[in-house]
Simulated assay, not measured.
Amino acid sequence: MDKKSGNKEEKAKELIARLNRLSSWPLPTSFILIIGVGYFFTFYDISDIGFAMPAIDQQFHLGSSLSLFHCAFSRAHRICNRFLCSWYHI
């Protein structure tokens, strides 16, 4: 067995053992509700924009490529912001 792969296996076993020693969710139960509500509104926003985009295209005389660019850019913007905010603990 390679020294690096053995080290990775030991680290993985140690991590699993540490996770198994956790007795329960360390945060209050209300946090699960708050996280669930956040996911609900995020996915509601995504589906709402998806259903409304054809009407928005007609009303503002946008092309489908421009509206597609807007949707893709806003999703990429959210992903980057969430990553940066979690990375820098803002």
Rank of each mutant, 00 (worst) to 15 (best):
30 S>W: 13
57 D>P: 00
89 H>L: 14
5 S>F: 09
79 I>S: 06
32 I>A: 11
1 M>H: 05
62 L>E: 09
26 P>S: 01
13 K>L: 14
43 F>K: 01
36 G>S: 15
12 A>Q: 07
59 Q>R: 10
10 E>S: 13
54 P>N: 07
45 D>N: 01
42 T>E: 07
70 H>V: 15
12 A>Y: 08
5 S>G: 01
62 L>F: 15
79 I>L: 12
41 F>Y: 07
25 W>H: 06
63 G>Q: 05
85 C>H: 10
78 R>G: 10
11 K>F: 04
14 E>P: 00
81 N>H: 09
89 H>C: 11
57 D>I: 11
23 S>R: 14
82 R>T: 08
24 S>L: 04
70 H>N: 07
60 F>T: 04
10 E>D: 12
3 K>Y: 07
37 V>T: 13
10 E>M: 13
62 L>A: 11
39 Y>C: 04
32 I>V: 13
36 G>H: 02
87 W>N: 01
66 L>F: 04
52 A>N: 05
3 K>D: 09
73 F>I: 11
70 H>L: 15
65 S>Y: 06
84 L>H: 04
17 A>I: 00
61 H>A: 14
33 L>T: 09
47 S>M: 07
19 L>K: 10
33 L>I: 08
79 I>H: 03
17 A>D: 07
85 C>D: 10
27 L>Y: 15
8 K>G: 00
80 C>N: 09
11 K>Q: 12
2 D>I: 02
44 Y>D: 03
71 C>Y: 14
61 H>D: 14
1 M>L: 06
57 D>M: 15
10 E>K: 15
77 H>A: 12
57 D>W: 00
75 R>E: 09
36 G>Y: 03
48 D>V: 03
77 H>Y: 12
41 F>L: 08
56 I>F: 15
23 S>H: 13
34 I>N: 00
47 S>F: 08
77 H>R: 07
61 H>T: 10
75 R>W: 13
58 Q>R: 13
17 A>F: 02
13 K>H: 06
83 F>Q: 03
41 F>Q: 00
66 L>W: 04
85 C>N: 12
90 I>G: 14
1 M>N: 05
63 G>V: 03
87 W>K: 06
30 S>C: 02
43 F>M: 03
87 W>Q: 02
27 L>F: 15
6 G>M: 12
6 G>N: 11
63 G>I: 02
76 A>Q: 04
4 K>Q: 07
15 L>N: 07
25 W>Y: 15
